[in-house]
Amino acid sequence: CFSHRPRPWKAQRRFDYADLSRLADESRFTVNEVEALFELFKKLSSSIIDDGSIHKEELQLALFQTPYGENLFLDRVFDLFDERRNGVIEFDEFVHALSVFHPYAPLEEKIDFAFRLYDLRQTGYIEREEVKQMVIAIMMESDMKLSDELLEAIIDKTFADADSDKDGRISKEEWKAFAIRHPSLLKNMTLPYLKDVSTIFPSFVFNTE
């Protein structure tokens, strides 16, 4: 006899149909696709510590092929996936966040997620200092050198374009208008793989089809 009330996802190794169906309802995925995502989740969550949740080092290992080092963007992605802010990504959080990256997810959701990623201090605005910090981080990541003058010029140009009310910070509305004008900014907010996730990670846990 099972209870179908939401229960803690942490360390949960198996799900019943009601769990999967609830996650499908809360996301862009079908039940089948949620099952497939669970296969991916199992792989990621057992790469270092097999405890049924994804630790930051495990996400880092998957994205950078090494569990070591610091990366500002990885930290931001991890924090946004970790809805409960308990330091690990649980399966339902994984499904919720990936749902934003679905090719059929509304543009609005992608714009909002990207805004939250770039609003490093979570003030409700993307500030000049934050953009600077992120450009410096990407330079370090890619071993590129940029003079201070060029860095300031890139940021000036970006703010001239995005900060319409010229208050030195980018509001959510300004970000939305800016992202719509420059759709390439949201390119990494769509993962075409998510359309074929059942093929990439076939699941035999349930036979739902």
Partner: peptide, 26 residues
């Protein structure tokens, strides 16, 4: 100095940390 055409967010969005497609590469 040549006019800057680069957009900071275009640069930022190229980070490997933001490229989740590698999660799907087996």
């Amino acid at each position: 100095v040549a006019p800057v055409t680069m957009n900071a967010f275009e640069l930022i969005s190229k980070s490997q940390g933001l490229n989740l497609s590698s999660l799907f590469e087996k």
